[in-house]
Nucleic acid binder design. Structure first.
Lengths: 248, 248
DNA sequence: AACATATTTGCGTATTTATGCAGTATTAAA
DNA sequence: TTTAATACTGCATAAATACGCAAATATGTT
C-alpha cells in the first residue's frame, strides 16, 4: 500500500470517528506504529488533523473526544466479545440498532467476511467502517426516535430474505413476557427480523433482565441464544435456562 | 508498444483501481521502470494523475484528503444559507451525500415541515436530528467509500417518485462536461436522482468549479440552480450564466 | 532510399525515501 | 508512585528515484 493511500484511509477514519488510535491503524494497515506515527506527523504538519498522544483527532471536532458516554459500556463490551464468536465467514447477519450492537460491530475482527443487513442508521454507519464484508440497508420511512426504518415496506422486504443470524439489542426481556418494547412500529420490524432469521440472538445487559415494556416482540421461546455480561451459571439467569437453548 | 498506448493503458488501470504501481506496470508493459516513471511524470504534468513514491494515484485521492477539512466550512455554510431558502413547507426534497448537504441540513429552520428522501447514511443521520418533517431512506447495498446506497434497486425506486427539488453536493462541475464524478455506481444513483426531480440544484464550493472527473453525471443544461459561496456576478461564474437559468 | 535530427528507452550508479527495529525517554493512568 | 503504554532517536536496510549516457527507434527532409 502506498503512503498516500494510508493517508487517505486515515483521513477517512478521522472523518467518520473524529479520532484514530495509532495502535488500531497499525493493525488495520499492517504497518508498524512508527510508520503510523510518521504518517500522523505528516498529516499534522499539513494541518489536516491534530496529532495527540496515542493517535490523532479531527481538526473540526476537538471537543467531542470524551463524548463516548455509552451507558454500561464495560458490560456491553463483554457481551460483544461473546456475540462475535457466533459470526462466521460467509454468513448473512441481521442486526438491529442500539449501543450493544455498535459495540459488537466494533469488536468484529477485520478479516471477517460476512454480509450484514440492518435497518438502523447508526448501525449502518458503524458497519461501513468495517473493511470487509458487504452492508445492506433496508430503507423506508425513518423513525426519528429509534433512528431506524419502519413500516410495511420494511416488513415486506425482510420477509423476502433468510438470514443465518439475527442479533437484537434488547431493551426488556423476562421469562413471562419474552422480549418487549415500546413502539409499535419498532416491534413490527423486530418481529419481521426474527421471522426472517434461522436463529435469533438477544443481547441484554443484566440490568434489563426481568423488565417488561408495554408490547410484546416475541415470546421467550423464540429466542435461540441469550447473551448477557454474566456467567451463564449466574443465579439471575437460572429461570431462563428452561426456555432458551443457549445462554452464553 | 507506443508511448501513447502505454499512457492509455495506465489511465485505464487508474480508472479501474484508482492506483498503479511502477513495478507492476513495468512487468505488464514489459518496459523498464524508468520508462514507467517517465510516463507517470508526463501524465502528472498533464494533471491527469498524481504521481507518488512507488507509483501513481487517481486525482480523486487528492480530493478526498482536502475535502472534509475545516477550511471549506465557511464556504459551505454560506452555500447552505442560500440553499435553505429554496425549501418550503410541504415539499418533497431529495438530498445527496456530502458535507455541504450536512451543512444545509444543520441550517434548516426547526419549524420547516418538509419530507426528505436520501440514499446517504450520514445525510440520514443528520436529518434525524431535525425536529420536524419526515425522512425516507432508500436502502440497498451500501457503498463503503461513499457511504450511500447504490445499485439497480435504488435506481428503480428513485424512478418511482417525483420530487420537487434535488440537492446534489457536487464534486466537480464545469461548463463543458457538466457535473462529473468518479464512481460509476454513484453516478447511476445521482442520474436517477436528477431524473426523479422537477428541479436539480447543484451545491459547489468555488474550488470545485471548472474541475472535471472521469465520468459524466449530467450535462450542465440539466442543472436548474447552481449555488456557490460566490456572488452571482463573480467573474468565475460568468461562463455558467448562459447554461444555467438560476445562479445564486 | 539515404541521411540528419529528434525522441525514446534501458542501464549503471549515486541519491533519496520509506520502513522497521532497538533502546531510551516520556507520558498517562491506576 | 508505580506501571504500562506511547513517543522519540538513531540506525540499518531495502526499495524507489534521479541522472547521465549510449543505443535504439522514430521522424522529417531531400
Amino acid at each position: 500500500m502506498l503512503k498516500k493511500e494510508r493517508h487517505a484511509y486515515i483521513m477517512r477514519e478521522i472523518d467518520i470517528h473524529n479520532k484514530v488510535l495509532s495502535s488500531d491503524l497499525s493493525i488495520q494497515l499492517t504497518v508498524s506504529e512508527d510508520t503510523i506515527r510518521r504518517d500522523l506527523q505528516e498529516l499534522d504538519d499539513n494541518g489536516i488533523l491534530t496529532k495527540v498522544h496515542g493517535g490523532a483527532l479531527s481538526k473540526s471536532f476537538h471537543f467531542t473526544l470524551q463524548n463516548n458516554t455509552v451507558y454500561s459500556q464495560p458490560e456491553k463490551k463483554i457481551i460483544a466479545q461473546k456475540a462475535r464468536e457466533l459470526i462466521k465467514d460467509g454468513m448473512l447477519v441481521l442486526l438491529s440498532g442500539g449501543t450493544t450492537i455498535i459495540e459488537l460491530i466494533k469488536s468484529l475482527p477485520h478479516e471477517l467476511n460476512a454480509t450484514f443487513i440492518t435497518v438502523s442508521i447508526p448501525t449502518a454507519l458503524e458497519l461501513l467502517d468495517h473493511p470487509n464484508g458487504e452492508v445492506i440497508f433496508i430503507g423506508n420511512k425513518l423513525l426519528k426516535s429509534a433512528q431506524m426504518s419502519v413500516g410495511a415496506e420494511v416488513v415486506q422486504r425482510l420477509s423476502e430474505i433468510k438470514c443465518d443470524l439475527c442479533f437484537l439489542g434488547t431493551n426488556s426481556i423476562d421469562v413471562e413476557n419474552g422480549i418487549t418494547d415500546l413502539d409499535l412500529e419498532v416491534i413490527e420490524v423486530k418481529r419481521a427480523m426474527i421471522r426472517s432469521a434461522k436463529k435469533t440472538v438477544s443481547l441484554s445487559i443484566s440490568k434489563k433482565l426481568n423488565t417488561v415494556q408495554r408490547m410484546v416482540v416475541c415470546k421467550i421461546g423464540e429466542v435461540d441464544v441469550l447473551i448477557t455480561e454474566l456467567d451463564p451459571g449466574d443465579a439471575l439467569l437460572a429461570p431462563y435456562h428452561s426456555k432458551i437453548s443457549t445462554i452464553i
